[in-house]
């Protein structure tokens, strides 16, 4: 080892890392400052510390409806993503069939291409379906379809990479001991990928909850939380109310995500074939 070189690069890298964190967190700090402030206009310096905007937020029905809509969409899209993404990954990793590579690529497309493409493609198609009378109109349902389509990829990718890394010996042992395909799947394979499914679902939920581009094109007259925020920004009303909403969301989501992270790690370790 060359201690000096190591110290220098450690110091240099540490400085860069600190700057990156500062860059990532500066806006969040600003958000928090304005959320706990009485000022209406968000120019610097802010006014007196206050809980005023949390009070405004609490008494405003619009963001509550918007959050409820966002939750409905995100939960449904996540459930759909798990139900469709997990078997898709399983099929691609455990079966042989024609066109498999191309299919894998197509499934991944919704996150490789920008959201605006998904949004306008579905918008034109749904508009046609509405004209045919198949769909009643744009709504949370159309938004959910849009979200589920990219959420599927997130679960799919996580599960696929986990399946690829797990050895088949456990499954083979299970089969050798007389279990049939389904038993093996339920008792051996599924527990092995549970962590990946949860991680994928968590990511899907997070991205759906914050999604705005696809939503922008596929929504009817309702609001999701990001659309409510966009409306607020564009209409210049009570900016810091947005900051207060953001603080609430961060405060609620951090423990959930930490917990989920903790849970997925536990399952990963306990069911990892390498550990056994």
């Amino acid at each position: 080892m060359f201690p000096r070189a190591s110290t220098v690069s450690r110091l240099a890298l540490g400085t860069v890392a600190a700057l990156v964190y500062a860059f990532l967190y500066l806006p969040l700090i600003i958000v928090i400052i304005y959320a706990f402030n009485s000022a209406t206009i968000t120019s610097w310096p802010p006014g007196q510390p206050s809980l005023h905007w949390f009070n405004v937020l609490w008494n405003d029905p619009d963001p509550r409806d918007a959050i409820a809509n966002s939750l409905k969409v995100a939960i449904t899209a996540t459930v759909l993503a798990v139900l469709l993404g997990t078997p898709a990954a399983f099929a691609l990793q455990r079966f042989r069939f024609f066109g498999k590579e191309s299919l894998g690529f197509v499934i991944t497309l919704p996150i490789l291409l920008p959201g605006i493409i998904t949004g306008i493609a579905m918008l034109t198609w749904f508009t046609q379906l509405i004209q045919w009378g198949v769909l009643p109109g744009l709504s949370l349902l159309t938004v959910t379809i849009g979200h589920a389509t990219f959420c599927i990829v997130l679960v799919f990718n996580n599960v696929l990479s986990r399946l690829r890394r797990t050895t088949r010996s456990l499954e083979e042992a299970s089969m050798d001991l007389g279990a049939d395909g389904w038993q093996t799947f339920w008792r051996v394979t599924l527990p092995g990928i549970r962590g990946a499914v949860i991680a994928g679902a968590l990511l899907a939920f997070t991205l759906s909850f914050d999604e705005i581009i696809v939503t922008f094109f596929l929504i009817g007259a309702q609001n999701t939380l990001p659309l409510w925020i966009l409306g607020h920004i564009r209409q210049d009303t009570n900016f810091p109310e947005i900051d207060a909403a953001a603080v609430v969301i961060i405060a609620v989501s951090i423990p959930i995500v930490l917990l989920a992270q903790f849970l997925t790690r536990e399952t990963t370790q306990s069911s990892s074939p390498a550990k056994l």
Binding site: N69, K72, V79, S139, L141, G220, Q222
Partner: peptide, 18 residues
């Protein structure tokens, strides 16, 4: 779409708020 509706029944009420 039939499949979609079946999978997301609780969205029925929100499907067309009008």
């Amino acid at each position: 779409l039939g499949g979609t509706f079946a999978l997301a029944p609780h969205l029925g009420d929100a499907a067309h708020s009008g």
